[in-house]
Design a protein around this nucleic acid. Structure first.
Lengths: 236, 236
DNA sequence: CGTAGGACCTTCCGTGGCGGGAGGTTCAAG
DNA sequence: CTTGAACCTCCCGCCACGGAAGGTCCTACG
């Protein structure tokens, strides 16, 4: 029994017949022989190649990567190194997501989850875990209706600022300056008008944005804060 | 400007126009209004919904999950908990992959990478990091040709054993018993015939298979080792 | 030696979350 | 009024297969 039928090979390798068909279709693992009626016969060499493919796939490579790895075996090492780097990034992203979810679930009531998420989304990664709980207690103090209103205004503000920024409107443009003023007014209401808290929030942002960016894999700072700072300066 | 055009909304939210089209198509975020000529006009409520969607997506939920989360907000908490569990599993898988890749890259010559991988693939997670280096030094001692031959035989053996196992052939079947005997003979050559090493390898397997299974997310032990053990007993 | 029922064949549609292009219409600034 | 950017719909493509349809083939049993 030196030739393998596709079904037996599927059983032995743990893959499905459909997968073997697919590998054949794309020319990755082709059955070298066929019976007169067209049934695939896998030779020992085919089987070896299949196992090579399977092992490379288990390391998380794509079929294209597997193909190129098998065509030039000297490219294995750089390919693996690239894959390792990608996996490291991936691991960090997943871990950051986990942290955010854990922080969210920890102590939040169901109804406030969505609100908090919206704020986070609008402001991207502005809020660290600590600021999250800060926000929660403050929201409780203000009452749900005030929070709703505040949220809507905030959303609109950031929204419009982002659009201006993406358009390349200079920060000194009167419309932008006006929006920045409203940003500050809103922030004042949110922080209870306490300048110490505002200053602390700004410091926290400055200190954390670099590490946040590193953690989550994409730039935490899209320049919005700097944009507002410039507009604030232009107002004088 | 209480209505948003699709382009401006894309700029402000950081999504693409195509994505907004897609959300509209599937009814996830629909522009409530249209101009007489058919251009989408997003109302503030639409914008809010879009940001809710975006925030939930950033937590790694699928569009379907987002949809159901927004339809019944009391399902948020269980959904998040499920997502957290999934992420935890995912994090472990990625970490295990990273560990395997690191172990592989650490000290391996390029040409031996593929061979080692094949062995790993055939035997699934049999080999721990320590056994990997063990294998490497032994392979160096045997010489490349012997390794090639050994590998091919090994591949064939495991292959056929798996097929029998998947077919439900009893371990006492003479064909299986014969394959098991050849397994042991091959193992003897690989371990240099040293029974202490063989025993150590078996102990290592028994001790590690549970933790390995947990780490990598799929069952490390498909029953092959037990199958061979039974066949060995039947020969006894 | 016939036949039944599994194994195998090709072909095609579907998945998720959009990317990107074609070909046509509409809007807004100068 | 013109022109170029923005918008529209429709459609194919990606990745790695899953799964079904509809037909042919192989093999073990009677």
């Amino acid at each position: 029994m030196t030739r393998w039928s596709i079904g037996d090979l599927a059983k032995a390798s743990g893959l499905t017949v459909r997968t073997l068909h697919h590998y054949d279709e794309i020319g990755l693992v082709v059955a070298s022989e066929r019976t007169p009626s067209g049934h695939r016969r896998y030779t020992p060499d085919d089987v070896r190649r299949l196992y090579q493919v399977r092992s490379l796939r288990q390391l998380g490579l794509s079929l294209e990567e597997v193909r190129s790895a098998l065509s030039r075996s000297d490219s294995l090492r750089p390919l693996f190194e690239a894959q390792l780097a990608a996996l490291t990034t991936r691991a960090r992203q997943v871990e950051a997501l986990r942290a955010r979810l854990t922080a969210l679930l920890d102590g939040h009531t169901t109804e406030s989850l969505l609100s908090t998420l919206e704020m986070m989304s609008v402001h991207e990664s502005y809020f660290t875990g600590g600021q999250l709980s800060e926000m929660r207690s403050r929201a409780a103090a203000l009452g749900p209706e005030a929070v709703e209103e505040l949220k809507a205004s905030w959303l609109g503000l950031v929204q419009q600022l982002r659009a201006h920024m993406a358009d390349g409107t200079p920060a000194s443009d009167p419309r932008v300056v006006d929006l920045a003023a409203r940003w500050d007014a809103l922030g004042a209401r949110f922080t209870g008008g306490d300048p110490a808290i505002q200053a602390a929030a700004r410091r926290s942002w400055e200190e954390n944005k670099a590490s946040i960016s590193g953690q989550i894999g994409w730039p935490a700072d899209d320049g919005l804060v700097e944009y507002v700072t410039q507009a604030r300066a232009a107002r004088g």
